[in-house]
Every structure is written in C-alpha cells, then in structure tokens.
Design a protein around this nucleic acid. Structure first.
Length: 260
DNA sequence: CAAGCTGTTAGCGC
DNA sequence: GGCGCTAACAGCTT
C-alpha cells in the first residue's frame, strides 16, 4: 500500500470513517508490529477516541482526544479496513471496536508494518529521523538539499531522512518523467535537472493521490503502467529495462533517461 | 517451485 | 561519517 499517495488515501479513509467515536475494545495481533508494550496500546486506546489525523511521509499519525498519537507505518502490504460485520480480516494486527458498532482493523499480512505510540509529532519526527514531507517541500529547499548530496540520485530520493514519503515506485516515475538515469550521481545534477525533478515530484504525488481517491488508473503515459522488462516505453521509442540500484529493482527507459 | 515485491534495518567493507 | 551492497523480515503472487 505504502508510499506518500497511498498513505494520503489511508488518511482520507480513516478521517471519513473513524473520527470522534469512542473505542470500547482493542484486539492486538503479532508482537513484532508493536513498538511499545502491547498493554500500553490497550491502556491508551481503550475509552479514547481519534480527533484528527496527520501525515509525515509514509507515516500516519492518529491524534487521540486523551493526549498523544497512535502512529501507523504500513510496511509493504499494510492497510486499514473499516467494517460493521463480524468477520475480522485474516491478517488484522490491530482491531478497534467503536461504541457505535463500527470496527477499524490494521491489516498487515507480511508484518512489515509498525504501530507506535507517541506524545508529539515533533518528537516522533525526530525519533524516526524523518526529512521534510515531500509535498510540503519548497522548491528552494529541494535545491538546497541536493547541494551536499552524493551518491546515486535514486538512493538519495529513497532516503526517508532526506525527503520523507518517496519509495521505489514513484522515485522511478520521477526519474523517468524527468529524463534522468537512476544511476546518475546527485553531484552531477544541474539546476535544470533539479527543477524538472521537483516539478515532476509534486505533479506525480498529486496526480496519483487524486487517481487513488477517484478510483481511476494513473495516466497511460506513466512508467507505472509499463513497469515490465521489454515493454514499450510510453514515449514511443525504446524498451523498458530493469537494473538494480541501491538493492532495489529499478525500471527505466534507456532512450529517455541518459546517464550523466 | 522458485523468485520477486510498494519498506526498513543491521551489518559489513571501503 | 557517508555510501554501496547484502541479508533478513513474511506471506502472497507469478
């Protein structure tokens, strides 16, 4: 589920289903999900209610009426499920039962997700060493960030302490749309490259979030739709190739994305 | 059946 | 300390 646009979608989902309802019961799943003792989650959440939610990068912070936040990191396969019936999904790791009979599960089959309790957003951001949220980053600050950055541009963009919210899929998309080879060294990027990357980052995150909430696919011009080796590049010439960068499968078009 | 996957972390080497 | 690489985590899909 989880890069910035998907988490933004989960935020809307939870805002529209689960705010301002008293939690009457808490069911807890696998130990490894919980970053504080499980009994703390039970104590803090029981009788409490969500009043708002916030997002930093790939983290969703649910603000509690009686102080603090429940923080969700979705891992690779986490998602929220709000329901009224009695069948709890198979891999639910946390289920909250509200006073009105509604229930909210954090479902996470691969158990790469994490749940935290924290007192403040600032403290949590610091603790996790999170960089600026990608869609709140100003153009000038984006340029500034790259002044001191070395190594491959793809690795830089994936680094959550550098910029929070980008992952494998949308970093590939940004670089594709910007015509930049993923192995390009950050120090070799010029002003124009950075301008393009910034514009495309904002565009892509915005467009994908909209598509997600409207339930429509992303544009066919997106690499996302053609992320297979040997597939034709949506720009017309070239075939998509796969290489490893920073240990992650990286798709790009050798015709559109030159090495610098 | 083996390999790959939207994410993160630890450990190693340079 | 920074950067690159690997393995590990766990379950489902191809």
């Amino acid at each position: 589920m989880p890069e910035l646009p998907e988490v933004a979608y989960q935020k809307l989902y939870v805002d529209s289903t689960s705010l301002h309802q008293k939690i009457v019961k808490v069911d807890l799943g696998a130990d490894k999900i919980f970053q504080s003792p499980k009994k703390d989650f039970e104590e803090v959440l029981t009788g409490n209610e969500f009043v708002a939610s916030h997002q930093i990068g790939k983290y969703l912070l649910m603000e509690l009426k009686d102080k603090g936040f429940l923080v969700i990191h979705f891992g690779m396969t986490g998602k929220l499920d709000y329901f009224q019936h009695n069948e709890i999904q198979k891999h639910a790791q946390l289920t909250l039962i509200f006073e009105n009979g509604g229930k909210l599960s954090f479902v996470c089959p691969r158990k790469f997700g994490k749940l935290f309790l924290t007192e403040s957003i600032g403290a949590f951001r610091k603790q996790q060493n999170l960089g600026p949220h990608a869609t709140e980053l100003k153009k000038a600050d984006f340029h500034k960030l790259f002044e001191k950055k070395k190594g491959s541009v793809k690795t830089a963009l994936m680094d959550q302490s550098f910029i929070a919210g980008l992952g494998n899929l949308y970093v590939d998309e940004m670089l594709f749309q910007s015509g930049i080879h993923p192995k390009t060294k950050s120090e070799n990027l010029n002003k124009k490259d950075l301008d393009k990357m910034y514009k495309n980052m904002v565009d892509i995150l915005d467009t994908v979030t909209k598509c997600k909430t409207e339930g429509v696919p992303v544009p066919d011009s997106y690499l996302r739709r053609h992320r297979n080796e040997e597939e034709d590049c949506p720009n017309g010439k070239g075939k998509i190739e796969m290489i490893k960068v920073g240990g992650r499968s990286t798709y790009f078009c050798p015709e559109c994305q030159e090495v610098k």
